[in-house]
């Protein structure tokens, strides 16, 4: 069966297997610090993937997505820290809060597009931040909420890491199903030309709401995972920079792919937490990385790698006279 696949597909399959294998083996190889980092990066990656579903696939770039994941995290935090509820209630309220935010934001944003969509979502994120520093009885204001223990079954760091790994891989698979479904294809149509999609009879407003809700679901999951990882939530989780970092992770790794945002998240989390131990000017390093990627690898690292791979595959082919044209079909590469 393996022989029937193309070389590219086999390499992808091999990489996926290696990635999952490494993920499972990681707690036996690395110490607690690195496992904590990988957990954080997986969660950030899921968050970036949900941004990419909106930005990369549907062409709806959001700068307020941390408002959705943060609302979910505050839901959990409030139930744990202030209401003293059980884990089921915590997670249920977290989900409800996150999805409610996604629904409200989706309804508010569904009639706009392009730059206007960016501005509407930006405002939404700022509203959540503004509430988080003002509603001190619910959010603890600037001090945040402490005292959010993990469920006993996943209390230890490696137990929680495995939970994170399983949830993120599951969500990744679900996202794969979404983007490869007819609905996912219609999202790409939305990105390329909303007018034409409307001409074809699509209800583009409804489409935007659906995709916002789906992306909101995955952001909610990432928010709940994050609050239990840190045992803490504060306005820093919902500031504009948190949303922007998610967008940058997606662009760095390769927008319009699912593996790209995950790679981008791993790079940024490791630069922030590991490189910064050795390099005091690490923000400069990160800025340079962004500039290099935007200048020389417009489709992100994944795009650059897949271009290089294709070039290598076809190295012996007769030279093609013209440059490949950047069309909608080859703009989104990768899984």
């Amino acid at each position: 069966m393996l022989r029937s696949l193309s070389l590219t597909a086999r390499v992808k399959l091999g990489l996926a297997a290696a990635g999952i294998g490494l993920g499972v083996a990681a707690p036996y190889i690395f110490d607690r610090f690195v496992i904590g980092l990988i957990s954080l990066a997986l969660i950030a990656g899921l968050f970036a993937q949900s941004i990419d579903l909106l930005g990369g696939y549907a062409g709806l770039i959001t700068l307020g997505h941390a408002g959705v994941s943060g609302t979910a995290a505050y839901g959990v935090g409030y139930m744990a820290s202030k209401a003293g509820a059980g884990f089921t209630a915590q997670i249920a309220v977290g989900f409800l809060a996150g999805m409610t935010a996604a629904l409200i934001f989706g309804v508010m944003a569904m009639r706009s597009d392009g730059v206007y969509f960016i501005m509407v979502t930006l405002a939404q994120g700022m509203i959540v931040w503004g509430l988080s520093i003002r509603l001190f009885r619910i959010t603890g204001a600037e001090n945040g909420l402490t005292g959010i223990p993990r469920p006993p079954a996943v209390e230890l760091y490696w137990q929680y890491y495995y939970l994170t790994l399983v949830v993120v891989v599951l969500c990744w698979a679900l996202l794969g199903i979404v983007v490869n479904s007819p609905f996912g294809t219609s999202l790409k149509g939305l990105r390329e030309s909303e007018t034409r999609m409307r001409m074809l009879g699509y209800n583009t407003t409804g489409q935007k709401l659906y995709v916002f809700l789906i992306a909101g679901f995955f952001a909610t999951v990432s928010g709940i995972l994050l609050v239990y990882l840190n045992g803490f939530i504060s306005p820093s989780t919902v500031i504009l920079a948190a949303s922007a970092i998610g967008v940058l992770e997606a662009i760095l790794g390769g927008i319009g792919t699912l593996v790209g945002p995950m790679i981008g998240a791993f790079i940024i989390v490791f630069v922030q937490n590991v490189v910064s131990i050795y390099v005091s000017r690490w923000p400069t390093l990160m800025g340079t990385l962004f500039i290099v990627v935007v200048l020389f690898a417009r489709r992100g690292l994944v795009g650059a790698i897949s271009d290089g791979w294709n070039k290598w595959l076809h190295r012996n082919d007769a030279p093609v006279s013209q440059e490949p044209v950047l069309t909608s079909s080859n703009r989104t590469a990768g899984p």
């Binding site: 700068l63 960016i118 930006l122 600037e142 500031i239 920079a241 940058l248 662009i251 800025g287 962004f290």
Partner: peptide, 25 residues
């Protein structure tokens, strides 16, 4: 692409702004 560049610009500006108004003390 233009939109992406716009977003990067906005994001960088946002982070600078957020950093400058960082709270407390």
């Amino acid at each position: 692409m233009r939109r992406i560049r716009f977003v990067i610009l906005i994001s960088i500006m946002a982070m600078v702004a957020a950093a400058c108004s960082a709270p407390d003390a």
